[in-house]
Design a binder for these strands. Sequence first.
DNA 1: TAGCTTATGATACACTGTGTATCACAAAAA
DNA 2: TTTTTGTGATACACAGTGTATCATAAGCTA
Lengths: 187, 187
Amino acid sequence: MTTDPRVQRTQDRLRQALADLVLQRGYEPITIRELAAAAGVGYATFFRHYPTKDALLLDLLQHSIQELARLLPPGLNADPVEEGRVIFEHAAQHEQFYRILLHSEGTQALLAQIQAVAVAEVLGRFGGQRAPAIPLEILAHHLVASIIALIDWWLQRGQPYPPPRMGQIYAEMIMRPFLALAGGERR
Amino acid sequence: MTTDPRVQRTQDRLRQALADLVLQRGYEPITIRELAAAAGVGYATFFRHYPTKDALLLDLLQHSIQELARLLPPGLNADPVEEGRVIFEHAAQHEQFYRILLHSEGTQALLAQIQAVAVAEVLGRFGGQRAPAIPLEILAHHLVASIIALIDWWLQRGQPYPPPRMGQIYAEMIMRPFLALAGGERR
DNA sequence: TAGCTTATGATACACTGTGTATCACAAAAA
DNA sequence: TTTTTGTGATACACAGTGTATCATAAGCTA
């Protein structure tokens, strides 16, 4: 196990430096030399921890996801409007993470993984009931993709509506049609 | 204007070589040297026509778009099911184009442009009627993003349903909720 | 504290790919 | 034919990646 505090320190510095640089100038133009310098770390040291820049990006996002998972409110299943409001409050509070995840090249694999996890969650929650007219797999993908697209739209335009309003829109435009087609919740 | 047949020949070869290579091994790992060799063109000649690999990719896609625009059936506004079927027939016939556009890095700008054009089209078609409960801008973005996501899902999984079935799904899952919220067509 | 282990910093280096410059040659245009 | 212009081939400068090496410092253990 890697409990050496020097390792932790180096990796923390690299993750933090990457987060800073990505928000300043985007992901692609960053060089590893520049990244190591910003982290206050030797150039060769980078490769002792990560084989590529993409590997560091994935590690950064996975750490962020674990932090977010700890903060995520556990029971979102009550009111769709309230559920949507919580989602968009969360997106507003962690805008940096979402922007990096949604718009840095090199995150498509991770985003696809996250999406797959969310789809599986939806499938599990709506799985065992009367067969819907549209395959549930398609409905689940449509639901997840729609939520991601709406968050992306909202953040890219500087949050033009407050989270409670976005919660209403989410409930009416996304969840209500989905529930009508999937047939309401179960278990 | 560039009517020199040598220029046309060189650029055609480069576009064709890029299309072939992208489908074989993806976009990013292709080098310009390799591309020029595959096109049967000198290495330096590449830079006489395109400043970067991305520029060639955009040129290739824009040429493809122009071809597709010529083939696009003019009146899609009749039956949503039929409209959806036509869309997915089109996606099946031009799968290569869609896959490159949707999954090559370096196409996000172009994809965003196409999406913006489609959104504007929707806004124009549903613009001047009773104000919907949800801002039409959001509805239009949701509609366009949903269609793109559904096409992407379908192609990535090897077209698991035939186009007529996808047309039904499109009508029921995407268009019907949209029309209910946007308030039906006009003009 | 002393001694061992391991991560780090610094540097040099080979390697790959980009983009430019040059020049002789071939193809198109007048 | 003469002129113009695109092309092929080559050499080159440059930037960025990934590896190797070694002295030093930080952390662990007795």
